[in-house]
C-alpha cells in the first residue's frame, strides 16, 4: 500500500470521508480519539487544563505532559513465555496473533537464560512523538493515562518514530505493521494493559502516578 498523502498541516486530505466514517461507526479502537486529542493544538490545551500535572518544556518552547501510567517489567520473575506478545497482538490487531505485531517485545537469549521484556516507558521526553512528521503521535488524554499513542488514521507509516526510538533504546518499541502500512505502539490498552493482566508470573505491572511519571528517555536509556 502506498503511503497516504498528507497536507502541510498534517491532516488527512479526505476530511469528509473520515468524518462520515466516524459518524457511521460505533466507537472502535480506531476512533477512540474522536473526542480527544486529534492534533498538536488540542494536545497543548490538554496541558493547560491539567495544571496539576507535571510537564516538561523543550528548548523550543513546546511542552509535553508526563504520562500518568506506564508498564514496567521485573525481569527476575519473567519466564520468557511470550504471553504478553500474543495477548497484545490479539487484542490490538483484530485477532492477528503474532510476535511481530506486539507492542511489547520479549527479548530472549535462550542459552544464557536471559529473558527481558522490552516495554514502552511512555518517556518523559518522547523522542517518537517529537519525530512524527504528521503529529500522528499524540498524548492520550481521554483514557487518563496520558500515554504516547499513535492515531492510526493520521499515521503515514514513515517509521520515523521507530527509528527515533531505536536511537535511544536497544529495540525500538514502535513496530511497523506492513499489512496496514502503519506504525503501531503501546497505548496502555486505554488504561488497562492486557499484557499486565495476562502475564502468568506477574513480571509486568502497571505503574501509576497522578503527578506523572518521570521515566524513560532521557532518564533511562539503552534498555
Amino acid at each position: 500500500m502506498a503511503p497516504r498523502k498528507t497536507t502541510n498541516d498534517g491532516q488527512n486530505p479526505s476530511e469528509k470521508d473520515r468524518t462520515n466514517h466516524l459518524l457511521s461507526d460505533p466507537i472502535t479502537r480506531r476512533t477512540f480519539l474522536r473526542n480527544g486529542t486529534t492534533g498538536f493544538l488540542s494536545f497543548l490545551s490538554a496541558v493547560a487544563i491539567a495544571d496539576l500535572l507535571d510537564f516538561i518544556t523543550f528548548p523550543d518552547g513546546t511542552e509535553i505532559v508526563l504520562a500518568k501510567a506506564a508498564v514496567l517489567a521485573d525481569k527476575s520473575v519473567c519466564s520468557g513465555c511470550r504471553t504478553c506478545e500474543a495477548v497484545c497482538s490479539n487484542f490490538n490487531s483484530e485477532g492477528r496473533n503474532a510476535a511481530a505485531l506486539a507492542r511489547v517485545i520479549l527479548d530472549k537469549e535462550y542459552v544464557r537464560g536471559d529473558y527481558q521484556p522490552r516495554v514502552c516507558f511512555q518517556c518523559l521526553d518522547p523522542v517518537c512523538l517529537r519525530a512524527c512528521p504528521v503529529t500522528a503521535l499524540q498524548v492520550d488524554k481521554q483514557s487518563g493515562t496520558y500515554a504516547r499513542v499513535i492515531d492510526e488514521r493520521v499515521c503515514i507509516g514513515c517509521q520515523k518514530c521507530l527509528k527515533a526510538c531505536d536511537q535511544v533504546f536497544v529495540l525500538p518499541r514502535p513496530r511497523f505493521d506492513a499489512d496496514e502500512n502503519i506504525t503501531i505502539k503501546c497505548h496502555l490498552c486505554f488504561g488497562d494493559p492486557q499484557c499486565v493482566k495476562y502475564c502468568p508470573t506477574g513480571a509486568l505491572r502497571l505503574e501509576r502516578s497522578e503527578k506523572g511519571l518521570r521515566i524513560g528517555y532521557p532518564i533511562v536509556e539503552g534498555v
Partner: peptide, 18 residues
C-alpha cells in the same frame, strides 16, 4: 535458576539453570 516457559504457557513447569 530462572523461570522458563514455553510459548504462551501459564503453567511454567520448568526452570532455566545456569
Amino acid at each position: 535458576r530462572v523461570l522458563d516457559g514455553c510459548f504462551a504457557c501459564p503453567v511454567i513447569c520448568r526452570a532455566h539453570v545456569k
